[in-house]
C-alpha cells in the first residue's frame, strides 16, 4: 500500500508542469524514503531528477517499494481537475495498474477522485556521480528565467561564464549578439532570496542550448531561488530547491567545440 498526502496540492501541479514539456513518460519510484524520478528528454541531451522526501508530505506510507509508470501529460490533465487550494492524496496498491488521485477542497465540501492508468516504461537509469562543482551560483529563479527567455530570442546557444565577479550569459545570432552579466550581491543587498551568490574554485565557461534551459525554467514557480552548478566539460546542473520537501534538478550536456 502506498499513500502520500500533500496539503499544498498545488505543489504537485507545479512539479508536473515543470517536467511534462521535457519528459513525456517516466517512472516515479516510491519507497520508504519518499518519491524519486529520473528521466531523460527524448533526444537524450538532458536529464531531470526529482526528489521528494517522505518528511515533506503530511502523511506518507509506503509498505513496499513500487514504480509508477506515468504518462506525464495525462497526469497533468488529471491534476488540472484539482483546485489550487486542494489537498492532494496519491494512492496505489503494491502491484498497481492505476494511480488514484484524491482531491479535497479546504472546507471538505468537494471531494473528487480520479484513476490514472499506469504504463510499463523501460528506462535506462543513469548513475549521477556526487560531484564537487568548480562553480556554484545561487540566484533568483525569476532572474534566470528572464535571462534565458531574453537570450533565446537572439540565438540558440548560450555561453555561460562564471568568474568571482559575476556570471555572464552570452548569445549570438543572425541579428547580432548580446550579453547579460549578473554580479555577486554584496552582503548588505536586501533579501536573501534576491541575492546572487557565487562559490568558485576556478572560472568556468560552457556552452548550452537555450531551448533546454528554457524547458528547465518551467520550474520557476516552485521556488524563489535557482542554483547552477558547473565544472569544465561536464553537464550543468540547474537545481530548484522545493521548500521543505526536496528538489528538482536538471542536467544538461554541454555543447563542445569539435
Amino acid at each position: 500500500m502506498f499513500e502520500a498526502r500533500l496539503t499544498e496540492g498545488s505543489l504537485l501541479k507545479k512539479i508536473i508542469e515543470a517536467i511534462k514539456d521535457l519528459v513525456q513518460e517516466a517512472n516515479v519510484d516510491c519507497s520508504e524514503e519518499g518519491l524519486t524520478m529520473q528521466a531523460m528528454d527524448a533526444s537524450h541531451v538532458s536529464l531531470c531528477s526529482l526528489n521528494m522526501r517522505h518528511g515533506g508530505f503530511d502523511h506518507y506510507r509506503c509498505d513496499r517499494s513500487i514504480s509508477l509508470g506515468l504518462n506525464l501529460a495525462n497526469l497533468g490533465k488529471i491534476l488540472k481537475c484539482a483546485g489550487n487550494d486542494d489537498v492532494v492524496t496519491l494512492k496505489a496498491e503494491d502491484e498497481p495498474d492505476t494511480l488514484t488521485l484524491m482531491f479535497e477542497s479546504p472546507n471538505q465540501e468537494r471531494i473528487s477522485d480520479f484513476e490514472l492508468k499506469l504504463m510499463d516504461i523501460e528506462t535506462e537509469h543513469l548513475g549521477i556521480p556526487n560531484e564537487e562543482y568548480k562553480c556554484t551560483i545561487s540566484m533568483p529563479s525569476g532572474e534566470f528565467q528572464r535571462i534565458v527567455r531574453d537570450l533565446a530570442v537572439i540565438g540558440e546557444t548560450c555561453i555561460i561564464t562564471c568568474t568571482k565577479e559575476g556570471v555572464k550569459f552570452s548569445v549570438s545570432g543572425d541579428l547580432g549578439n548580446g550579453n547579460v552579466t549578473v554580479r555577486q550581491s554584496s552582503a548588505a543587498d536586501g533579501d536573501e532570496k534576491d541575492q546572487v551568490k557565487i562559490q568558485m574554485e576556478e572560472p568556468v565557461t560552457l556552452n548550452f542550448a537555450l531551448r533546454y534551459l528554457g524547458f528547465f525554467t518551467k520550474a520557476t514557480p516552485l521556488g524563489s531561488t535557482v542554483k547552477l552548478h558547473m565544472s569544465p566539460d561536464v553537464p550543468i546542473v540547474v537545481e530548484y530547491p522545493i521548500d521543505g520537501i526536496g528538489s528538482i534538478s536538471y542536467f544538461l550536456a554541454p555543447k563542445i567545440d569539435e
Binding site: M40, S43, H44, V45, S46, L47, E124, H125, L126, G127, I128, P129, T157, N207, A209, V234, P235, F251, L252, A253, P254, K255, I256, D257, E258
Partner: peptide, 14 residues
C-alpha cells in the same frame, strides 16, 4: 563548430 553532447556520455548506466 559546437556539437551538442548526449547526456549518457557523462553518466554511466546503472
Amino acid at each position: 563548430r559546437n556539437k551538442q553532447r548526449k547526456i549518457m556520455v557523462f553518466f554511466s548506466s546503472c
